[in-house]
């Protein structure tokens, strides 16, 4: 394989929230065409990793590197990162009362793509994606995430990502709270994001999602680090045996 620039390189990343260190030396490389799953217990720091990657102001990088296509992003604002090609599907999407889904999608798609999209063209694209994700037309006039059920929020997150077409999609527990039908639909949406130029980072608590979105790499996250990495089989093993048996991979143990 040629030495193509990775989509994302995280090197010995440390980050804190209000003086508490949460990320304690994360190393991860995602190349184009790869799907990585990060699994771990609640409180292991998985979500912190996703917020830190997007630049949430509460999360402060204390050392290490975050390189997107070779470019250091840790000093950039979240909107600059979004415009570069990073996108996060939130675990708990935030409601913005008074802002309709259609206005929201149009403004954000325009912002990320950096150009005006003709109304008709945008509408066609939107309708096609909505149909794929089983999102009804009536959603367009509702306020974004306001009074949405858990499943509705997750569908709309994936709908947004399908319009933003990020080169790095980070999905933070997108599977949580979904029934099996919704999980299948949302998984199809995630699979549709994958191209040879796209990297996908799935953060999840359950192995179930990985039946529908198949990662090449599975990482176990614990205490602010990747404790062990492996292939899809690792997820199944975690499902069967829980997290207690996991021993650090040699690379991690050596540190």
């Amino acid at each position: 394989m040629t030495a193509k620039q990775p989509i994302l390189q995280i090197i010995d990343l440390h980050a804190k929230v209000e003086d508490k260190e949460i990320l304690k030396g994360v190393n991860l490389t995602i190349n184009g065409g790869e799907v990585h799953a990060i699994m771990g217990r609640n409180g292991s720091g998985k979500s912190t990793l996703s917020y830190t990657l997007m630049g949430h102001p509460r999360y402060q990088v204390t050392s290490g590197k975050m390189l997107y296509k070779g470019q250091e992003i840790s000093e950039m604002s979240p909107d600059e990162r979004a415009k570069l090609g990073l996108a996060l599907a939130f675990q708990y999407p935030v409601a913005i009362p008074g802002v309709s889904v259609s206005n929201f999608l149009r403004a954000t798609t325009k912002a990320v793509r950096g150009k005006e999209i003709p109304v008709k063209e945008f509408r066609q694209e939107l309708k096609a994606q909505m149909a794929k994700l089983g999102v009804k037309d009536e959603f367009l006039s509702r306020y974004i995430n306001d009074g949405f059920s858990g499943g509705e929020k997750k569908r709309i997150e994936i709908l947004q990502l399908s319009l933003l077409k990020p080169a790095l999609a980070i999905l933070d527990e997108t599977d949580s709270g979904l029934d099996i039908d919704a999980l299948k639909t949302v998984s199809e949406g995630i699979n549709a994001l994958a191209t040879p130029e796209t990297g996908i980072l799935l953060i999840t608590h359950y192995q179930r999602l990985l039946n529908y979105v198949q990662p090449q790499f599975v990482h176990v996250f614990q205490d602010g680090q990747i404790l062990k990495s492996g292939g899809p089989d690792l997820a199944l093993e975690l499902e069967e045996r829980g997290y207690d048996w996991v021993q650090p991979s040699p690379a991690v143990a050596a540190k």
Binding site: D79, A82, F90, I96, G98, V99, F104, A111
Partner: peptide
Amino acid sequence: FYLQCRGLSVQEAQEFIVSG
């Protein structure tokens, strides 16, 4: 933060929130 993650600047995001 949510709006910024979708590509809007702080200024644009504030305007959105106020209009809403």
